[in-house]
Nucleic acid binder design. Structure first.
Lengths: 335, 335
DNA sequence: CTGAAAGCGCTTACAG
DNA sequence: CTGAAAGCGCTTACAG
């Protein structure tokens, strides 16, 4: 029913070998005459090569799988974009699988990584335990993870923003601007990147003697819009002056929630996000944010994975230093 | 080097057939004893099945490919999300390929669709000509396109918002609110969805006698942030009172550009978008927008594609009626 | 309850 | 310049 190389061979009056050779542009040894016949036959029969069979023998697909937790957070889509474009230039096609925080989808993702259709993988913000249990160790050799390092995965290649430093940067900036009543807003699930940011944030405040404790100063919610609005309620009721949001999406949602309640940013509350995502620029106010340098992270990931694909050695861990982007959502205050 | 079914068979002391049977849970006929041995051997050798080989013979992968133009526009990511989740429930995994408006990546996408690894495809907003030329007609039978219909693709299944009607809805609303100096903002590339929206918009205005001509009333730019800011300049210099943006991202960018220039929305300029994307809710003002009912579109796509996968007949064209979402970015004016 | 054999659609030494 | 043959790693009638 589907036309194969054999059909083309029959139509062209030659062997399957010859067809394969011609179609793979290895036709230096084939006569022009035969070449033409083959191409004509292939066109006539509407032949398209079965890549499954091809890859089975070649063990090469030029395909890379990218696993992300969701497609809502612009950070993930932006980083995907860079990686797609970067690999396109190198002749690789990247397909992205978003687990949408569903373990079953994540498992399918791991299976896909295991099954050999994709030559390499990039995983953003994953469940390390699950990976460790279900991923074939051989896959590690062609995988780069974009998330705060965990001891649990000692064999893996990592590139990520320096979350700890980023958290400290945020804390320093807010306190330099005179803020003392601070909280953090983060996700309910303990994402390693986020936790490290909080750790850095807290550590800086402790050093300079500003009150900050995990129980009262860290707010958690699902990141649906209503959870984020709950943050707004709390900020208002507790008279907080500065908020560190572990990503930009939370920051934008929080600003929106505050404004709906008659509060102004930064006049009444100062907000700082993390990532400095491109999509922020479509937003009315210029969000102050710790820039995780998405482009550099992407480039790093591409470099490492290409090295791995070429079986070259390379550094295991690659921490990209964050930079503070001073927007207009943090105000200096004096008390 | 990679362990195969043969290795497992040798280790377990049985035939490859038996291993395959056990690992595919078709073990009703296999003795408990053997079963255990096989599973143990597989674990010991860290065996993972080669899906390439498997799919080659089964012609079944439970994988669906989704092709989108970019991952920046929240409309694409939101629709992807719904489709990923919907298919997950049905046991299919969806991987998305973003062409990033690069023909070469789009071509890879078409190749992937052709190559048989994916059982079905969903394509959002594509280049019809390119599809027609390069896609194996057999793929049409398992493909649904989410974009305004083109005569060029008569064989294809389509589900999309009723763009024409949506455009008219926007025009009616703005004119009902008293606006007469209107323009549209759209992309430089002629996306079928967008063009149809403009057509609907213009047609309504013509009917009620409001001035609107394609040359002076339709602004086009690349959808980078600077292009969109150029829109803002124009709106201000021409004293426009109402703007129809063919998608929400343009609308948000435009609002941001106007505010930077000291203009207020909706006090000075009224803005209406298209899609009513979820991400809008993280934005400070509630954007007035033609709701394309992304969920219904997604559900429609899932239904049709599952029918196609089951070789059932179904309707070719599925137009989802849009609904006006009244936010707070359009103001009534009277002159 | 189990296995030998054919076949999925391709590529690639090898021989001529 | 061209082709027969083996093999990629699996599944699935078929036979026993």
């Amino acid at each position: 029913m589907t036309t194969t190389i054999k059909d083309v061979a029959r139509e062209a009056g030659c062997s399957p070998t010859t067809v394969s050779l011609v179609l793979n542009k290895q036709e230096n040894r084939i006569s022009e005459e035969t070449k033409r016949k083959v191409i004509k036959a292939a066109e006539k029969l509407n032949y398209t090569r079965n890549e499954l069979a091809r890859n089975l023998v070649r063990k090469k697909s030029n395909l890379i799988a990218m696993i992300v937790p969701d497609l809502i957070n612009p950070y993930y889509t932006e980083i995907s974009n860079h990686i797609i474009n970067g690999f396109a230039k190198l002749g690789y096609t990247v397909m992205v699988l978003s687990t949408n925080n569903d373990v079953r989808i994540e498992d399918s993702g791991l299976e896909i990584l295991n099954n050999g259709f994709f030559e390499g993988g990039i995983a953003v913000s994953i469940d390390f335990e699950n990976f460790k249990n279900k991923l074939n160790p051989k896959v590690y050799e062609k995988l780069v993870v974009l998330e705060e390092v965990q001891d649990i995965m000692e064999d893996i290649h990592v590139v990520t923003t320096d979350n700890y430093k980023g958290g400290r940067l945020a804390a320093k900036y807010l306190s330099d601007m005179g803020h003392k009543r601070l909280i953090c807003c983060t996700s309910l699930d303990k994402v390693p990147n986020h936790e490290k940011r909080l750790e850095g944030f807290g550590s800086y405040l402790h050093e300079i003697g500003v009150e900050f404790d995990d129980y009262n100063s860290i707010l958690r919610s699902n990141l649906e819009i209503d959870g984020i609005e709950m943050f707004a309620e709390y900020v208002i009721s507790e008279d907080v002056t500065g908020v560190f949001c572990v990503n930009d999406l939370i920051a934008l949602g929080l600003i929106s929630g505050l404004r709906k309640r008659g509060k102004r940013v930064p006049e009444d509350v100062s907000i700082i996000g993390y990532d400095n995502a491109y999509l922020n620029r479509f937003y009315s106010s210029d969000l102050t944010s710790v820039d995780s340098q998405i482009k550099r992270i992407s480039r790093g990931a591409i470099n490492i994975l290409t090295s791995l694909l070429d079986e070259e050695k390379c550094e295991k861990i690659n921490l990209v230093p964050p930079i503070l982007h001073e927007g207009e959502t943090v105000k200096r205050i004096d008390e």
